[in-house]
Simulated assay, not measured.
Amino acid sequence: MPQIPEGRNWLKPGEVAERAGVAVSTLHYYESLGLISSRRTSGNRREYRRDTLRVLAFIRSAQRVGVSLDRVKEALDQLPRKGLPTKKDWARISRQWHDELTERIEYLTGLRDRFSDCIGCGCLSLKSCPYSNPDDALGAGGQGPRRFP
């Protein structure tokens, strides 16, 4: 992976994409969602601030643990608009997500521990299955297919 010279604060989309391990189209998508921002050069080309790399690492890490892009945006909206986010800023976001991530870990651990039994049970009961439809939450919406929460 090529090193980016220390003194450069603005990077081309290709440089950011390669360094972050994403496609340039992903940068454009994240920008359309307001997760990252760019500026335009006099030649109308995008450039991203160097600290966009840290934001992209945060986005990808959050996605790996199942955090939605909407939740990521809520968190990023709390960061300072001017200047770089501090360790304290990132710690605040981490505290806010702690309980949600702990709950998700507990759920996934239970699923992992009972997965063979669940798949092999053959009940095919969406009404009583604690994994597909906990507490028959989908039944409250009436008959027919429902989107899982």
Rank of each mutant, 00 (worst) to 15 (best):
E100I: 09
N133G: 00
C123G: 05
S94N: 13
W90D: 05
R45W: 14
F58S: 01
R8F: 09
W97T: 04
S61D: 09
R60M: 08
G14I: 10
R112F: 06
L35H: 00
G122W: 04
G142K: 11
D77H: 06
P13F: 01
I59R: 00
V72K: 00
R50H: 06
K88H: 13
G141K: 10
K73V: 14
Y29N: 00
R19V: 05
H28L: 13
W10M: 10
C123L: 12
P134R: 10
G139S: 05
K12A: 11
E31H: 08
Q63W: 09
R147C: 03
A57M: 09
G122S: 02
D113R: 08
L79D: 02
R146S: 14
E74L: 13
A57R: 14
Q63A: 10
I93M: 12
Q96H: 15
T52I: 02
D117L: 12
L27G: 00
K88R: 11
P2V: 07
S116Y: 14
R81I: 12
S61M: 10
M1G: 12
G144D: 01
D89W: 01
R45N: 04
T86N: 07
N9L: 13
V67C: 09
I119S: 06
W10A: 08
R112I: 05
Q78V: 05
G34A: 04
V67G: 03
G66I: 10
N44F: 06
R40I: 04
L11S: 00
